[in-house]
Amino acid sequence: MATLEIKDLHVSVDTEDGPKEILKGVNLTIRDGETHAIMGPNGSGKSTLAYSIAGHPKYHVTSGSVTLDGIDVLAMTVDERARAGLFLAMQYPVEVPGVSVTNFLRTAKTAIDGEAPKLRTWVKEVNAAMDRVKMDTAFATRNVNEGFSGGEKKRHEIVQLELLDPKVAVLDETDSGLDIDALKIVSEGVNRFKQNGDKGVLLITHYTRILRYITPDFVHVFVNGQVAEEGGPELADELEANGYDRFVSAAV
């Protein structure tokens, strides 16, 4: 059971000309078992929403609330949010020199679970998770994301998603830069995660392509820092056919 509730969220970033408001009152409720797709043109604030939920220090919440099962997420530190059950699959996963994937995954798993995973089963689990996304297990000894291709980084995000098994996953343009094979592999990973209990998924994407493999329950069109329109999967079909023009011109 998990409900992520975002109410009237306003978020600013610092610019040279002072604070600039990016999110202008976002309302969104993700109940367990639901997959929500957020679609929108570049610069509409989709990624800002993802990073604000995860607590990136660059983004300042000026008003509104984010709660997970009624508990104030905004009062939590970045790592507390993750331990509370939130996961952000990043569009640009960060390289961490000198830290091996093995060490990173074990440290993260230990932090999330509050105890170290059992060594024997854990190694098997990691190898199996890498196998499922067709990632060579040799990656385990490499430094986190260092020298990984774009596709390998995204697969590594899915490996983490499956191993850390959060309540709610926010996927920030996980489909960007993937070829069709990689897109299918990543989508299958997300679908496995969804089947593994009542999971919430917030799928942020620019393109409708990934929605052929991950079926959303709800589609939200994001324009100018707000949800401009909401609907079912059919809304994605309309965007596929007509693009964002209708929403962008309406917002101007």
């Binding site: 995860a54 607590g55 990136h56 220090p57 530190t77 970045v78 790592d79 949010r81 993750a82 331990r83 996961f87 952000l88 990043m90 996963p93 960060v94 390289e95 961490v96 020199p97 000198g98 830290v99 060490n103 990173f104 440290t107 993260a108 932090a111 999330i112 430094n143 986190v144 983490q160 850390l164």
Partner: peptide, 28 residues
Amino acid sequence: DEQLFYLRSRGIEEFEARRLVVHGFFHD
């Protein structure tokens, strides 16, 4: 900051994240 954010977004506490980054810096 991005390295620390990435590690912390996986539940790793700030001090542990810093420790990992410094060890990583010297590791190779």
